[in-house]
């Protein structure tokens, strides 16, 4: 009964639990650093109609633009390398070496090369998400079975139709998973990057509130950045449900095998 209710309202359930824990910590610790969650929320709501919305918008825009660029670039190169073994032999080892490098270390370089403004931040986040998307898509294209290719080709499908019926639907769920994995990282990175040479963005807002020792505003910022993350995750979920409902048939049965 209860577990059914939770399953139906997962986000609401999690929110309530987190607020309760937050409130308990607030009560036991009695420090200004952990304010009353209800005060934080009312501050958040109050600020949202002004200043905060502006910062939230700036961050959201940076993330969304980066996601679009990384899907386009990472997707194209991932497909290309996955479908052309000869090129992958040259680029594969290089990618392998670059993949684990924390790209954030290049923020200073990007700022020198592309300026202190939005461009360097967007490029940094694009690079982070792009790598994940590129590697995931390349590997999932390579993992497509030969018989699937042959059976579609035997129907007389053109190259374009092979993309339409075989390659794109096959990689879409994998690409969304890659996105989900890398968006978390990229929000943290954005938070960091927004502390340099900008006066807009949720990262700037939080750190600015901190230096002003205004903890309620700081928490309002934290709530905002959490909502940004939640918004992106939920959008990916929706996209997945809409476009890849077949993929969910193959997972989620593990616990029933394990009895």
């Amino acid at each position: 009964m209860l577990s059914k209710l939770i399953k139906k309202h997962q986000t609401a359930y999690a929110t309530i639990v987190i607020w309760l824990i937050w409130y308990l910590i607030h009560l036991t610790m009695q420090t200004k650093v952990v304010p009353n969650p209800f005060d934080a929320i009312s501050t958040f709501v109050r600020l949202l109609s002004g200043e905060l919305l502006f910062h939230l918008g700036a961050s959201t825009l940076r993330i969304l633009i980066s996601i679009i660029f990384s899907l386009l670039i990472g997707g194209t190169f991932g497909l290309f390398l996955g479908l052309n073994d000869r090129f992958d032999r040259f680029f594969g080892p290089i990618l392998y070496l670059l993949y684990p490098i924390p790209k954030i270390a290049f923020l200073p370089v990007f700022m020198i090369l592309f300026g202190l403004g939005n461009t360097s931040k967007i490029i940094l986040i694009t690079v982070i998400i792009m790598f994940q998307v590129l590697v995931t898509i390349r590997d999932s294209v390579k993992g497509l079975s030969r018989t699937m290719f042959l059976s579609v080709r035997s129907t007389g499908a053109s190259k374009l139709q092979i993309y339409q019926h075989l390659i794109l639907p096959a990689i879409l769920p994998k690409a969304l998973t890659a996105l989900r994995l890398s968006v978390g990282t990229s929000i943290s990175v954005l938070f960091f990057a927004e502390n340099f040479a900008t006066r807009y963005g949720i990262g700037y807002f939080i750190m600015d509130a901190w230096t002003r020792i205004n903890y309620l505003e700081m928490y309002a910022g934290i709530i905002a950045i959490s909502l940004l993350g939640l918004f992106i995750f939920k959008s990916i979920d929706l996209l997945e449900q809409w476009a890849c409902n077949w993929a969910s048939l193959e997972k989620g049965e593990q616990s029933s095998y394990f009895k």
């Binding site: 018989t147 042959l150 579609v152 080709r153 035997s154 007389g156 639907p169 077949w246």
Partner: peptide, 21 residues
Amino acid sequence: LEPRMETSVILQDYGLLPWKN
């Protein structure tokens, strides 16, 4: 020279597409 429209092929693991019903 290329797959014929009038030839149909059934492969060992059927080659059905998992994303199509």
